[in-house]
Amino acid sequence: MRKLFALISTFFLWVGLAAPALAYNLTTCGDNPSFQARAAKAATEQAKARFENYAQLQCGADGLPHLIVDGSIAHLGEFIIPSILFLYIAGWIGWVGRAYIISVRGDKSPEMSEIIIDVPRAIRIMLTGFTWPLAALAEFTSGKLTAPDNEITVSPR
């Protein structure tokens, strides 16, 4: 009975009884006095252009722009798109590195191929690595991406 009460209480507090956190009293950077003071100190044209671009974002009392990650379309370009691009590029680097290691595995001296990179081979693999999400899905569904349980070593307990 206690567990049920705790679960129900937690649910109600989570859903509606707890006041949602305010956005830290953020204001538009163009209207924020601290941000305007920082922008007035910009010395180069590049810095002035950056402050003009940041003027549409939300700033705190410190005059610095803040990211808003709430899932709305209005803030999509601030966090979601850059993070997806980061994950794609990081996955591409990992996939290409994995493909290179697999390709040199059959050479007569694979360790030396890891130390001294075969640049033409690496570039060829890099150019095909942009389709890594599809290749990873294909290898996962075929079972080539993961190892069977009997090949995984487990320490004795």
Rank of each mutant, 00 (worst) to 15 (best):
M1P: 15
M1E: 15
R2L: 10
A6L: 06
I8S: 11
I8C: 05
S9F: 01
T10I: 00
T10H: 00
F11R: 05
F11W: 07
F12S: 02
F12Y: 03
W14L: 13
L17D: 02
L17T: 08
A21T: 05
A21I: 01
A23E: 07
A23C: 07
Y24H: 12
N25F: 10
N25G: 04
L26F: 03
T27K: 08
T28H: 07
T28I: 07
T28N: 11
C29L: 02
C29F: 08
D31C: 02
Q36W: 04
A37D: 08
R38Q: 14
K41L: 09
A42S: 08
A43I: 04
A43T: 06
T44L: 04
E45G: 09
E45P: 00
E45W: 00
A47I: 03
A47N: 13
K48C: 07
R50S: 12
F51P: 00
N53R: 15
Q56R: 05
L57G: 02
L57Q: 13
Q58R: 08
Q58D: 15
Q58E: 15
C59L: 07
G60Y: 05
G60Q: 02
G60K: 02
D62C: 09
D62I: 11
L64W: 01
I68N: 01
I68A: 03
V69T: 06
V69S: 06
V69A: 08
D70H: 02
G71C: 06
I73L: 14
I73Y: 12
A74S: 12
H75Y: 05
G77V: 02
G77R: 09
E78Y: 03
I80H: 06
S83F: 12
L85K: 11
L85F: 15
F86H: 02
F86T: 11
L87W: 12
Y88Q: 03
Y88A: 10
A90R: 11
G91P: 04
W92I: 10
W95H: 09
W95K: 00
G97A: 14
I101Y: 09
I101M: 09
S103E: 15
V104D: 04
D107Q: 02
D107C: 04
P110G: 03
P110A: 01
P110L: 06
S113D: 14
S113G: 08
I115N: 12
I117Q: 09
P120L: 01
R121W: 09
A122F: 12
I123S: 11
R124Q: 06
I125D: 08
G129Q: 02
F130E: 05
W132I: 05
W132V: 01
A138L: 13
A138S: 09
F140Y: 10
S142A: 10
G143A: 01
L145R: 07
L145G: 15
A147S: 12
D149I: 10
D149V: 08
E151F: 03
T153G: 10
P156F: 09
R157W: 04
R157S: 15
